Simulated scan of single mutants.
Amino acid sequence: MIGYVTIGTNDIEKSKAFWCDLLEELGASVVMDAGRIAFIGNGSEKAMLAVCTPYDENAPHPGNGAMVAIDPGSKEMVEKLYARALELGATSDGEPGQRIPDMFYGAYFKDPDGNKACFYQFA
């Protein structure tokens, strides 16, 4: 149902590098690059993450309550990709752990632009 989610950046090249490096193990790469916006994923037929400089040319602002959630396939990958995000310059917004007993495992971080994201796994 979801085609893509867009997050703002002040530095499109830095943002593309961060997200491509982070999601490389999931097979993601830049699917389409139109200069001020780049779509990252496993092909245009699947959900993608788009990074962009805002169309109105004003500064991007992460939304309060807005978040991108990515299912990497296992709890081990949640932990691995969370650690990789921090290595790449993200900040922790919640270490890996069980959030809903026997149901939801997640790890939260903010990318270098302050956009909140989560790697998660349903039990």
Rank of each mutant, 00 (worst) to 15 (best):
M1N: 02
I2N: 04
I2A: 09
G3F: 03
Y4M: 04
Y4D: 02
V5P: 00
I7K: 00
G8P: 12
N10Y: 10
N10H: 13
D11N: 14
I12S: 01
E13K: 12
K14Q: 11
S15C: 08
S15D: 07
K16F: 01
A17K: 13
A17L: 11
F18L: 11
F18T: 07
W19Q: 04
C20P: 02
C20G: 00
C20M: 06
D21W: 05
D21R: 13
L23P: 01
A28R: 01
S29G: 15
V30S: 01
V30T: 14
V31Y: 06
V31W: 03
M32D: 00
M32A: 15
D33M: 10
G35T: 08
I37E: 03
I37Q: 01
I37C: 04
A38E: 00
F39P: 00
F39R: 05
F39W: 11
I40G: 05
S44C: 02
S44N: 07
S44R: 07
K46W: 03
A47C: 14
M48L: 10
L49E: 03
V51A: 07
V51W: 03
C52K: 07
T53W: 04
T53R: 12
Y55M: 09
D56M: 04
D56F: 06
N58Y: 08
P60N: 01
H61R: 15
H61S: 09
G65S: 08
A66S: 12
A66V: 10
A69E: 02
I70P: 00
D71K: 05
D71Y: 04
P72D: 04
G73L: 03
E76F: 08
V78C: 08
E79R: 14
K80M: 07
L81R: 09
L81D: 04
Y82P: 01
R84M: 08
A85N: 02
L86P: 11
L88P: 10
G89C: 12
G89E: 06
S92G: 10
D93Q: 09
D93P: 05
G94S: 06
E95G: 06
G97S: 05
G97Q: 05
Q98T: 15
Q98L: 11
R99P: 05
R99N: 12
I100R: 13
P101G: 13
P101K: 14
D102E: 13
D102T: 07
M103V: 08
G106L: 02
A107I: 11
K110A: 13
D111L: 14
P112H: 09
P112A: 09
P112E: 03
D113G: 15
D113S: 15
N115I: 14
K116P: 11
K116R: 15
C118D: 15
C118I: 13
F119E: 14
F119C: 14
Y120W: 11
F122G: 10
